[in-house]
């Protein structure tokens, strides 16, 4: 292989597009995570009650109700018929994520994402082995288990453990021992299982994935002809099994990443020095033919 293989992941993109160009979506994503957290903290910290409540359920501007649909689903299978406000709130959330990609929640809103991203960053830095890698489908099984336990015990079972709402509630209402649970997730991803929590186990990720199966907003490998096999997108993607079908698709196959596992984080767009990826909608199956930037030419250069 050429000397380029030894470049650190993303280095090439930084050289080609500048640091900002190679981190655009990462920065936007962090900004979005901070933004959503801050919305909830404005009240308790500064007395500005635009948004009241937490990720499980909230009320914005004394008008807009939002409810976590998975929590409400557990409540329903546990035998409670939720009030209208909660149902409307859940319907709004479902509609939004069904449109923009279920797992947009994971990468743009969820407060645990920065934690597992940090764990992954450190994991990489320390060069740790990937460790236990349960099947990606494990999370769907766990989702099923959570719903079954909710039904059997008549409780909202996942909320007894859910590190997402614990952390969020902790930040907005007072922490208690929630930090211990967050630390556990961090350590799990760091030493036990690379990308283990969000990518393999979290039932919330499974739920939002299912929510976005038919979502409109998608990343597409439009410019896949230009791919020079640097593999950087595979290195940064938290769900890198989703890339191949689109990127390595034969002519005539859709370049759109259709897997509901894709979190729409846009990191692949950032990290690609030849701009293979772009956000588009799921029906946009265009592929740019750029013979000049074909695989062989690039590698030879």
């Amino acid at each position: 292989m050429s000397a380029r293989t030894h470049l650190a992941v993303g280095q090439e993109a930084i050289e080609a597009k500048g640091w900002y160009g190679a981190h655009r979506y990462l920065i936007l994503r962090r900004a979005s995570q901070v933004f959503f957290l801050l919305l909830f903290l404005l009240g308790p910290w500064f007395g500005i009650w635009w948004v009241t409540g937490n990720l499980a359920g909230s009320r914005s501007f004394d008008l807009l109700p939002l409810t976590d649909p998975l929590i409400l689903l557990q409540s329903v299978v546990a035998g409670h018929l939720p009030g209208l406000t909660a149902l409307i709130g859940a319907a709004i959330v479902v509609a939004a994520y069904a449109l923009i990609g279920g797992r947009v929640y994971c990468s743009w809103v969820c407060p645990i994402n920065p934690v597992t991203d940090a764990a992954h960053w450190l994991h990489d830095k320390l060069g740790l082995p990937k460790g236990w890698q349960p099947k990606r489908a494990t999370r769907y099984w766990i989702l099923g288990t959570v719903l079954a336990v909710s039904a059997l015990t008549g409780t909202i079972a996942w909320e007894l453990l859910n590190p997402i709402t614990m952390l969020h509630r902790g930040l907005v209402f007072g922490m208690g021992f929630a930090w211990a649970l967050v630390a556990a997730v961090f350590l799990f991803d760091l030493v036990v299982s690379r990308r283990g929590w969000c990518g393999h186990l979290c039932p919330v990720s499974a739920f939002y994935g299912l929510l976005g199966v038919k979502s409109l907003l998608r990343v597409s490998a439009v410019n896949r002809a230009a791919c020079d096999d640097c593999m950087d997108c595979f290195a940064v993607c938290p769900e890198n099994q989703v890339i191949s079908p689109a990127l390595r698709g034969k002519p005539g196959q859709s370049p759109v990443i259709l897997s509901p596992d894709c979190t729409n984080c846009g990191r692949c767009i950032d990290v690609c020095s030849v701009d293979v990826f772009a956000f588009t909608h799921r029906f946009d199956t265009r592929v740019t033919e750029t013979p000049a930037a074909g695989r062989t030419e690039q590698t030879a250069a």
Partner: peptide
Amino acid sequence: LSACIRCGLCVRDCPYGTLSLADLG
């Protein structure tokens, strides 16, 4: 326990600061 989603809206709207959400642990 099958109904409360732990959103804390009741806590926020209590003018006397009576209510709180139970901490983990």
